[in-house]
Computed example of a mutant assay.
Amino acid sequence: MITRMFMVWFALVLGGLAAHATDKGGAAGSVLSLDDCRAIWNLAAGRSDLGRDQAQPYVPDFAAVDVNGDGKITNAEFRAGCETGLVHKARRAD
């Protein structure tokens, strides 16, 4: 449990540093605003953790966001992913 908390904390710290180094857009690889991150979480997961299928439209690299490797993305992991540019707004169908 402590290791997981440290990993999430570490990801949040790195996310804060990345936020200063990138723009605040919605494109893949850019840092999402907290409001955009919350909106995407509520749309994709609501009150539960995200599985791989639920995360797919928003998280191209599931393993990078699932920092503890348990096969699901928690809200804390998702927020850290938003802050590091690993989560993006769903792409429109062409």
Score class of each variant (00 low, 15 high):
residue 89 K to T: 15
residue 52 R to N: 10
residue 55 A to P: 05
residue 59 V to R: 01
residue 70 D to H: 02
residue 68 N to M: 11
residue 64 A to Y: 11
residue 68 N to W: 01
residue 80 A to W: 14
residue 87 V to E: 10
residue 52 R to G: 12
residue 43 L to I: 13
residue 66 D to P: 14
residue 89 K to C: 10
residue 67 V to Y: 03
residue 73 I to T: 07
residue 69 G to K: 00
residue 65 V to I: 07
residue 43 L to C: 10
residue 42 N to P: 08
residue 73 I to C: 01
residue 56 Q to G: 09
residue 71 G to M: 05
residue 68 N to C: 08
residue 66 D to S: 06
residue 40 I to T: 06
residue 42 N to W: 00
residue 77 E to P: 01
residue 51 G to F: 12
residue 76 A to L: 05
residue 43 L to Y: 06
residue 65 V to E: 06
residue 50 L to N: 02
residue 50 L to F: 04
residue 54 Q to R: 08
residue 67 V to K: 03
residue 91 R to N: 13
residue 51 G to S: 15
residue 70 D to V: 12
residue 57 P to L: 05
residue 71 G to C: 11
residue 55 A to L: 14
residue 79 R to A: 01
residue 77 E to G: 01
residue 47 R to I: 01
residue 87 V to A: 00
residue 45 A to C: 01
residue 77 E to I: 08
residue 62 F to P: 01
residue 91 R to K: 14
residue 62 F to N: 15
residue 59 V to M: 10
residue 67 V to W: 10
residue 59 V to T: 03
residue 75 N to Q: 15
residue 64 A to W: 09
residue 82 C to F: 05
residue 52 R to W: 14
residue 91 R to W: 03
residue 83 E to R: 02
residue 48 S to A: 04
residue 59 V to S: 08
residue 58 Y to F: 14
residue 62 F to I: 11
residue 85 G to D: 09
residue 48 S to G: 13
residue 40 I to F: 11
residue 64 A to I: 02
residue 75 N to W: 10
residue 42 N to D: 14
residue 89 K to H: 14
residue 73 I to V: 14
residue 75 N to T: 01
residue 43 L to Q: 10
residue 62 F to G: 11
residue 84 T to F: 08
residue 75 N to H: 00
residue 51 G to Q: 04
residue 72 K to H: 11
residue 80 A to V: 02
residue 74 T to W: 02
residue 53 D to A: 10
residue 46 G to F: 10
residue 41 W to D: 11
residue 55 A to T: 09
residue 67 V to I: 02
residue 66 D to L: 14
residue 76 A to K: 13
residue 61 D to K: 09
residue 49 D to I: 08
residue 49 D to N: 10
residue 73 I to F: 06
residue 83 E to V: 00
residue 39 A to N: 07
residue 51 G to L: 13
residue 51 G to Y: 05
residue 77 E to L: 05
residue 82 C to I: 14
residue 46 G to S: 13
residue 70 D to G: 03
residue 67 V to D: 15
residue 89 K to Y: 13
residue 78 F to Y: 07
residue 78 F to W: 12
residue 67 V to A: 01
residue 83 E to F: 12
residue 89 K to L: 15
residue 81 G to A: 15
residue 89 K to M: 15
residue 60 P to C: 08
residue 80 A to Y: 04
residue 84 T to C: 06
residue 58 Y to L: 05
residue 50 L to A: 01
residue 42 N to F: 03
residue 74 T to C: 07
residue 88 H to V: 07
residue 83 E to L: 08
residue 51 G to H: 12
residue 54 Q to V: 00
residue 48 S to H: 11
residue 39 A to M: 10
residue 61 D to F: 11
residue 84 T to Q: 02
residue 81 G to V: 02
residue 71 G to K: 01
residue 68 N to A: 07
residue 75 N to P: 14
residue 81 G to Y: 13
residue 81 G to S: 02
residue 68 N to G: 04
residue 64 A to C: 03
residue 66 D to M: 05
residue 58 Y to C: 05
residue 62 F to C: 08
residue 75 N to G: 13
residue 44 A to H: 02
residue 52 R to C: 12
residue 58 Y to H: 06
residue 47 R to F: 07
residue 65 V to K: 06
residue 50 L to V: 00
residue 44 A to I: 11
residue 47 R to K: 09
residue 90 A to P: 00
residue 90 A to S: 02
residue 88 H to A: 14
residue 91 R to V: 08
residue 91 R to G: 15
residue 42 N to E: 04
residue 87 V to L: 12
residue 63 A to S: 09
residue 76 A to G: 15
residue 55 A to E: 00
residue 74 T to G: 00
residue 80 A to D: 02
